[in-house]
């Protein structure tokens, strides 16, 4: 079977583009967390420090799934594992 390098590279680029669609999920999740935190600060301005640190921690954990997608995209683009 004949391998066409350009074809594989093009398909890798498409795959990388599809992989970073994973960024939608963390975007929604982080926005939700930030909105809830803003509402919490509005109700209880005294607890702003605690709310901020909890929000940042939760957002950073929620970000992980998006980063997995980014890692897959980078592997496809720069390490090129599909090339024979």
């Amino acid at each position: 079977m004949e391998f066409n390098t350009n074809f594989i590279l093009g398909c890798s680029a498409i795959g990388a583009g599809l992989a970073v669609i994973a960024g939608i999920g963390p975007g929604i999740g982080q926005g939700n967390a930030a909105g809830q935190a803003a509402a919490a600060v509005g109700r209880n301005p005294g607890a702003k420090g605690d709310i901020m640190s909890t929000m940042l921690l939760g957002q950073a954990v929620a970000e992980t799934t998006g980063l997995y997608g980014l890692l897959i995209a980078m592997l496809l683009l720069f390490v090129k594992p599909l090339l024979p």
Binding site: A60, V61, E63, T64, L67, Y68, L70, L71, M74
Partner: peptide, 16 residues
């Protein structure tokens, strides 16, 4: 794995 990948991917994405 998730702890190390989180740190690695965040810093790597900034570098890239």
């Amino acid at each position: 794995i998730s702890l190390s990948l989180r740190l690695f991917a965040n810093i790597l994405s900034g570098t890239v």
